[in-house]
């Protein structure tokens, strides 16, 4: 396995990006432009929209979900090399991962009990 395996993927990146950017530029040149004030306003189901985009707020809950995601995603990334090497690690690998998972599940149970996974109050 060499770096050459990534060559087709580089080609695919270039091809699909060219396709996307090319069609957007072509559409910009070919399509009609009849801008009106109402058309450029944010869509709010037909009523006059509130002005100012900086004032938008959304629940902090989303931020907490993102933090939890990072913890669990790192764990997933950690499980992959373990799974690949499992054939050689044998019982040692099983105990190692059981300990790791126990620590993680303890943290998970704590988050659950403290209500970190509840969405609706």
């Amino acid at each position: 396995m060499t770096i050459g395996a990534y060559l087709p993927i580089l080609f695919l990146v270039i091809l699909s990006t060219l396709f996307a950017v090319g069609s957007m530029i072509a559409a910009a040149k070919l399509t009609p432009r009849k801008w009106t004030t109402a058309k450029l306003q944010p869509y709010e189901s037909g009523i006059v929209p509130e002005e100012g985009k900086e004032g938008q707020r959304f629940p902090v809950k989303f931020y907490l979900t993102a933090m939890l995601f990072i913890i669990f995603d790192i764990e997933t990334a950690f499980l992959y090399p373990w799974a690949v090497a499992y054939g050689e690690l044998k019982v040692f690998g099983l105990i190692e991962m059981a300990v790791f998972m126990f620590i993680l599940i303890a943290a998970y149970a704590y988050v659950w009990k403290r209500g970190g996974l509840e969405w609706a109050e």
Partner: peptide
């Protein structure tokens, strides 16, 4: 869809929107 008008809303961030 290709020939529909292509416009960017007033409040939109130029580059991120594209």
């Amino acid at each position: 869809l290709f020939f529909k008008e292509d416009f960017r809303p007033k409040n939109a961030d130029r580059w991120a929107y594209a």
